[in-house]
Simulated scan of single mutants.
Amino acid sequence: MLNALEVVTTVVVGVMVGVEFAVAFVMNPILNALPEDSRQLGHAHGGRMLGAVMPVWYIGSLVLVAIWAAVGWHHGTGLVVTAGALLILSVVMSILLLVPINNRNKTWTPENRPEDWKEQTQRWLRWHYVRLAVIGAAFALLATALV
């Protein structure tokens, strides 16, 4: 049972890291290459779509890691606990730094967007890179704990 939990948790976190990597290094460059109105509409749509899915994924990943740490406590779970702490940090970062920008961004249209919409989008992306590094490190710790 513990082995299955370890594998499922590692895969769930790994796929989440992959999605966030794709957002940073695939989707954003594609959107940023579009004309301004299309670019902004694409970012708003992405914010609505991923903004609905990612909170469940982040919290679900954290719950899986917590269960792994609790169930496997007697097997030594230092790496898992550290990965959990990093996932907590990523959730806190999301709530305090990324979600407020995303909540504004997802309501913008070409008619109502603020003058600094590009700067706000770039600020979100900079914080996203930091969060990606944090969850990437958590995934690496989980993969190491798995082997």
Results as ranks from 00 to 15, higher is better:
Met1Gln: 06
Met1Lys: 09
Val7Phe: 07
Val12Tyr: 05
Val13Asn: 07
Gly18Phe: 09
Gly18Trp: 07
Val19Asn: 08
Glu20Asp: 02
Ala22Cys: 03
Ala22Pro: 06
Ala24Gly: 05
Val26Trp: 10
Val26Phe: 08
Ile30His: 15
Ala33Val: 04
Ala33Arg: 12
Leu34Thr: 00
Pro35Thr: 06
Glu36His: 11
His45Lys: 10
Gly47Trp: 07
Ala52Asp: 08
Met54Ile: 04
Tyr58Lys: 13
Ile59Val: 14
Gly60Met: 04
Leu64Ile: 04
Val71Thr: 09
Trp73Gly: 09
His74Glu: 15
Gly76Val: 01
Gly78Gln: 14
Val81Ser: 07
Val81Ile: 11
Thr82Leu: 15
Thr82Met: 14
Ala85Ser: 12
Leu87Trp: 00
Ile88Asp: 06
Ser90Cys: 03
Met93Asn: 02
Ile95Tyr: 06
Leu96Gln: 09
Leu98Asp: 02
Val99Lys: 13
Asn102Cys: 07
Asn102Met: 10
Arg104Thr: 01
Asn105Gly: 10
Lys106Ser: 03
Thr109His: 07
Pro110Glu: 13
Trp117Ile: 12
Trp117Pro: 11
Gln120His: 08
Arg123Thr: 13
Arg123Cys: 12
Trp124Leu: 15
Trp124Thr: 11
Val130Ile: 11
Arg131Gly: 07
Leu132Lys: 05
Leu132Thr: 02
Ala133Trp: 06
Val134Ala: 08
Ile135Ser: 05
Gly136Asp: 01
Ala138Asp: 02
Ala140Cys: 05
